[in-house]
Simulated scan of single mutants.
Amino acid sequence: MSSSTETESTAAAVPAARRVGWTAAGVLAGVAGVVGIQASGGVTAVYDEGIAGNPVAIAERLTDQRTTILVEHFGFAIAALALLVFAAGLARLLTDRLERGSVLPGVAAGGLVVTSAVCLLGTGLTTELVFGLSERDQMVPEFAVVAAHWLGTIPWLWAAAGVSALAVAAASLRHGAVPRWLGWVSVVLGGLTALFGMSPLQYMAGFTGPVWVLVCAIGLWVSGRKQAV
């Protein structure tokens, strides 16, 4: 192998190696987001028709669901932090591959940063709820109801991740910055996530947003591996 060929192989391998870190963060964010959504769906006390309108009964049911609440908390907290790393890596990748001055890297990263903030805020009442439920005489039942509704709604607002997906789709299908298959996946999942976010069914975005993050991160890692070979 010639010296120039070795140099080119090394140059290709370095970006691919660097990509492992932030794409791994994206995989972690996607998995953690899915776990958080599933756990949130298991906190059913405030949605049980049999005890609807009865704050005391709801607080008692929530006491039995504290483990699920903690799983939700850790899922969304991990997703929030990992999304920041993934957003930075995605922005750098798109900046390197798109023409100078393109807004797509900023839009892609910005949507994920907003989603990170949403996830973090979604966990904001967990401490009050979990510890308050362990000492029921210290918590007003009506607050437990409000906090449970907060956990069941706020962290599901992944609409901004849909905007990130659409930015990746544009970078792929118009500029060839990432694989075309990922562009089409981003059109479908990103479009659904954004549309859900704009509708009265905005919480449905929590089902599709984390899945797109997971697929996108895996896709970018795999494409990076292929380029390094």
Score class of each variant (00 low, 15 high):
M1F: 14
S3P: 06
T5G: 06
E8F: 11
V14S: 15
A16I: 08
R18E: 15
R18F: 15
V20C: 01
G21S: 11
A25I: 04
G30A: 10
V31W: 05
A32T: 03
V35E: 03
G36Y: 09
G41Y: 13
G41A: 12
G41M: 12
A45I: 08
D48R: 09
D48E: 10
G53A: 10
V56G: 00
V56H: 00
R61C: 02
D64M: 13
I69K: 09
V71G: 11
E72T: 08
H73N: 13
F76A: 04
A77G: 11
A79D: 05
A79P: 03
L83P: 11
V85F: 15
F86M: 02
A87T: 05
L90R: 02
A91S: 15
R92W: 05
R92T: 06
D96P: 04
E99Q: 13
E99I: 10
A108W: 02
A109S: 12
G110C: 10
G111M: 05
V113S: 07
V114L: 14
V114E: 09
A117V: 08
A117D: 05
L121Y: 08
L121F: 12
G122T: 03
T123R: 05
F131W: 14
L133Y: 08
E135W: 08
D137C: 03
Q138I: 10
V145C: 03
A147H: 12
A148M: 07
L151D: 07
T153Y: 14
V163A: 13
V168N: 10
A169G: 08
A169I: 02
A171P: 08
S172Q: 07
R174N: 12
W181I: 03
V185W: 02
V188I: 15
L189T: 00
G191I: 01
L192C: 05
L192A: 09
S199M: 09
Y203G: 12
A205L: 04
G206Y: 04
G209D: 00
P210W: 00
W212L: 01
V213T: 10
V215L: 12
V215R: 01
C216V: 04
I218H: 00
W221G: 06
S223A: 15
R225S: 13
K226Y: 10
K226N: 12
Q227P: 08
Q227G: 14
